[in-house]
Simulated assay, not measured.
Amino acid sequence: METNKIQEALGKYNLDLNDAQVAEETKALLDAHLEENMTPEVKKFLMGSIELTTLKTTDSDRSVMEFTDKVNQFDDAYPDLPHVATICVYPCFAEAVKEALRVPGVEIACVSGSFPSSQARMEVKIAETSLAIADGATEIDIVMPVGKFLEGDYEGVAEDIAEMKNACGDAAMKVILETGDLRDSKDIKIASILSMYAGADYIKTSTGKEKVSATPEAAYIMCRAIKEYYDETGIQIGFKPAGGINTVADAVTYYTIVKEVLGEKWLTNKWLRLGTSRLANLLLSDIEGKEVKFF
């Protein structure tokens, strides 16, 4: 992608962001609207937006199939609650999930492209992604090349993302910005626009592998970028906060930001995803009114 085309695309958006102002606007939004969303209906909705994730060194075919079977059992045990949106695993386990999964409508996502660092030759990233899709992955999560971005190589960033999108084919691609490694609000806004411009179907905050993961401020900036991009192009992009979603209040916080910035059109489990596993039991316990350790 030519540098002048990238600069032309970025020039259509407001990039003059101030960290203090973003923090103030985010706080004001949450102060005004968070409590009104602490309802059973919202919590049930959020249950259906979870990307149930296992990305452990100790994962195996057997453990991943058992993990997947929990989703099958949940659908039987709680027929009145929505099942999770996605099961997210390493690429080598896509086939195991596909073999074990019996619940229709649950997507199979794989982190790919040398997750979580994105530090590999493009040929390796493409091969890993193509194999994951061949094995059953319906969605692919990749990491933006953060090093290139921080050096100002926006052309290289866009080219990498576009190549990965080409490898994904019909599978939806989520681009992880790793917002905790970016320098400021302006960086997050630029990374969001670049990723969408280059072919992202979703933009995602974090891998969960760095010291700083999702934050309300990063989510606010990314949702503002998604809204501006939609207004400019008519293309709807999904949003996925991930990493550090440790409480029900955290989940409702991100729901509130999406609702207030993006609106009702994004309040489906297609366009809003939550990258977490610990949240599933917490939400279920809150909904049931007692401690539940199902997953």
Rank of each mutant, 00 (worst) to 15 (best):
N4A: 12
Q7G: 00
Y13C: 10
Q21I: 05
E25M: 11
E25I: 06
E25T: 07
A28H: 09
E35T: 14
E36Q: 15
N37I: 08
N37L: 03
E41A: 11
L55R: 03
T58V: 14
D59N: 15
R62H: 13
M65S: 15
M65I: 15
M65Q: 15
Q73K: 15
D75Q: 14
P82N: 13
P82L: 10
A85N: 09
A85M: 12
A85K: 09
C88R: 06
E95H: 12
L101F: 01
S112Y: 00
M122R: 01
K125S: 06
E128A: 04
S130P: 00
S130L: 11
L131V: 14
A134V: 02
A134P: 00
T138Y: 06
G147F: 02
D153G: 04
E159T: 14
I161Q: 04
D170I: 01
M173R: 10
K174N: 06
K174A: 03
D181R: 09
D181S: 13
R183V: 11
S185E: 01
A191C: 06
S192C: 02
A198R: 04
S206A: 11
V212M: 12
V212D: 12
A214T: 12
A218Y: 05
T233L: 03
K240D: 08
P241T: 05
G244I: 14
I245K: 02
T253I: 10
T253Y: 02
E264Q: 12
L274E: 03
D286N: 13
K290C: 07
E291G: 07
K293T: 08
